[in-house]
Amino acid sequence: MKHRSTLLTTLLVLAGLSLQAQSISIEKVQQPIKQKGFYPKLSPSGAFMTFTSEAYGGLSLYRFSDNSVEQVSTDKGSGFDPVFSTNEKKLFYKQINYESRLRKEGVKSYDLEKKTELEMLRPRRNVRQLQAYKDGVITHAESKLFRSSTSKSKEAISNYVWSDGNNLNVFRNNKTTAINPIKGARGYIWTSLSPNAKMILFHAAGKGSYVCDWEGRIIAELGDLNAPVWYGNDFVVGMQDKDDGHFVTESKILMKSLDGKVEKVLSPAGEIAMYPAASGKASKVAYNTLAGDIYVLDIRITK
């Protein structure tokens, strides 16, 4: 009962925020990078964008300020979910290698000003997703939380969310919990923390995408939406892809408000558009096509 009333309260708050009808429009579409790229990631401010190859090998950085592209890494797996530090001076990414045919991952950082690389965590098993922390990064590996920082700041980790593929885990108030909010989900993937660190976005395999709070109470049901990412605290961008069991047959990029009142397809009809990235601060959404073309959209939300 408590669960239901909390949910109701949350929905009412969200509804109150959106009393005026909102609309989403695309202001500009550009294809800033001529080379093929996949899985773009926008920095929180929207000043930078990373991209990688079809199987996440190698990592490239695009600077919107001067339209330059630089190769950050050629490591295997380095393109898989890199993160920017909160001050956007560093870029953190993983590398995959195999020892005795078992997968190990290490963490590296890239200084965006000096353009230098630094090893943050030596390769080990089960290094989970990276989360920005001050000028460093947080991850979970081998049953432990790791905090790597390039400064001397030792501020305690306040929160961290990650998936091991099967469980949705949170670290908060110095405690780790598997919250697993959706009964019958085959696994939890594409988990992320909202910019205000109050909500968790995730996809429950076989069930759909959701937003919950730190206790696992569902705030928003986003339905059929894959690879969801935050656009500010009120919107999520994801893809609706379909396949025939062999290959992807269609996919579009969709933007949804958490209150369910606003929904907009951002990609043109007929294009197979996948794996969006978003920066609410910069009003930008990026995605790649099946053929590896990256598009960046300028978005406008009006009330």
Binding site: L102, R103, D164, G165, R186, G206, D241
Partner: peptide, 29 residues
């Protein structure tokens, strides 16, 4: 072991992108 489905229902027929992501986040060997 992670298995992408344990029943034979339409809802268990996960999208290819979801299956791939599950294996990636599971960090399978």
């Amino acid at each position: 072991v992670q298995i992408s489905r344990t029943q034979n229902r339409t809802e268990d027929d996960l999208r290819l992108s979801v299956i791939v992501r599950m294996a990636n986040e599971f960090q399978a060997d």
